[in-house]
Nucleic acid binder design. Structure first.
Length: 420
DNA sequence: TCTGGGGTCCTAGGACCC
DNA sequence: TCTGGGGTCCTAGGACCC
């Protein structure tokens, strides 16, 4: 058994932006942003040339344009991303079946069983990088180490277009000078909390007592950070994990929450969520609605039902009730709404015709509602029509929603892709 | 000039049960 | 009489990741 840095983390560099530069040579070497515009919207990804100016994914377009006046905004060929990423994952899978994909563009590999065939992890990493470059045309960075967390840190350090192998006897030397923000799970809030205690590097974090970290960050986060800093995190590479929730959301700008608007948006979201659950033969007991108000404050309301549901109509009805509860709790005057979201969790298998009854009514034949079997038949025919004629063939998306919703549908398709 | 869309995990308080 | 301890589930909120 090979003992050493047998966990690899492989991560495509600036993936969406790199694909755009691959597809359009005129964009190569230039600062580009995928998504957004100089006037609005959100940048989904930035090329390294743009990152040099401080442009980052998630940033409003107008701010990105101010940071980098030559920035080129491209709309994004969203349908091209998934196949290219899949092609890369296939290459990774050629050296080991133990590939855990954690997003569209990155994966962990356990190569402990592969070293006798392909050589040490550093050689495997270099080989994978060459193949991805030659066969797909993209740069991928690879980190190799004894644990997942350290491999991920190593790939971040390797970027752009690099390979970093952390030998076991040099782990401390490698980790200690790095900023805490490179650690998985340390975001802006935690980084600030640590900075307030004079902790800026992973080395400094390693010298903090577990008790101090627990009281500062809570038991779980404190424990985990302590383990990460000492590189004793035990997580293994595991292929295939089921989703724990299915959700959809829609940003609305600022809108007065009329009955028509709320019903239309929630109906549309429920259709997306329900359709995806039915496609996976899953159903869920807990339905959560999030309402974000103008000013970005948001509240959630949820309910757990006695039985799992996946019908569009049932989800719509429950979601509507929850949304009005959330809005009503804000008091007068009724605030403007900037986003609605539905998520279904507590998932389990969905089998056969469900007995989904309209909530809050004893009589399933109440006008305007449908009994369980009718709901199931309705969903089934809608799903079938969509499968045959395309996703826009049926269902309803009122004209009031059609415009101004910033994100292309192709991106939604991509974002909802099941990676399990 | 005004902030996307998809997720995971954790915490705290309360209800409820034994 | 007036109050123990443990466990589970639910709800709301928040940090974080890609």
């Amino acid at each position: 058994m090979f003992v050493g840095p047998t966990i690899l983390h492989a991560d495509l560099d600036a993936f969406y932006a790199s694909v755009e530069q691959l597809l359009n040579p005129a964009l190569r070497g230039r600062p580009i942003a995928v998504g957004g515009s100089a006037h609005g919207g959100v940048v989904l990804a930035a090329s390294y040339e743009a990152k040099a100016f401080g442009v980052q994914g998630g940033m409003p377009g107008w701010r990105a344009a101010r940071l980098c006046p030559e920035l080129v905004f491209v709309r994004g060929n969203f349908t091209r991303y998934q196949p290219l990423a899949d092609q890369v994952m296939d290459i990774l899978g050629d050296v080991t079946p133990a590939v855990q994909r954690i997003s569209i563009d990155e994966a962990f590999l356990d190569v402990s069983g592969s070293v006798h065939l392909f050589g040490p992890p550093g050689v495997i990493g270099a080989h994978l990088r060459e193949r991805v470059r030659a066969e797909v045309g993209l740069a991928i960075s690879v980190g190799a180490a004894r644990t997942k967390h350290l491999a991920k840190v190593a790939s971040q350090v390797a970027k752009p277009d690099g390979l970093v192998v952390v030998e076991p006897e040099r782990e401390r030397e490698f980790l200690d000078p790095l900023p805490v923000a490179l650690m998985w799970g340390v975001g802006p809030v935690t980084r600030q909390h640590l900075a307030d205690r004079g902790i800026h590097t992973i080395g400094e974090l390693g010298r903090a007592t577990p008790g101090m970290l627990r009281s500062l960050l809570g038991p779980a986060a404190g424990e985990r950070l302590h383990a990460l800093a000492h590189n004793t995190d035990p997580r293994r590479v595991s292929a295939g994990q089921r989703a724990r929730s299915v959700g959809a959301q829609s940003a609305l700008g600022r809108r007065e929450p009329t009955a028509e608007l709320v019903r239309a948006v929630l109906g549309h979201l429920a259709e997306r969520v329900g359709g995806r659950m039915r496609a996976k033969e899953r159903a869920g007991r807990t339905i959560t609605v999030r309402v974000r108000f103008a000013g970005m404050r948001s509240v959630t309301r949820s309910v757990t039902l006695g039985a799992p549901v996946s019908s569009t109509l049932t989800i719509t009805e429950v979601a509507e009730r929850l949304a009005w509860q959330a809005i009503g709790d804000q008091g007068e005057p009724v605030p403007e709404v900037s986003l609605l979201a539905i998520s279904v969790s507590n998932l389990g298998p969905q089998r056969g015709v469900q007995l989904e009854l309209p909530l809050g009514t004893e009589d399933p034949w109440r006008p305007g509602s449908a009994p369980g079997s009718a709901r199931w038949a309705l969903d089934a025919s809608m799903d079938a029509a969509r499968a045959r004629f395309g996703k826009d063939a049926v269902g309803y998306l009122p004209a009031t929603l059609g415009r101004g919703a910033g994100v292309p549908d192709d991106f939604r398709e991509l974002a909802e892709k099941d990676l399990g």
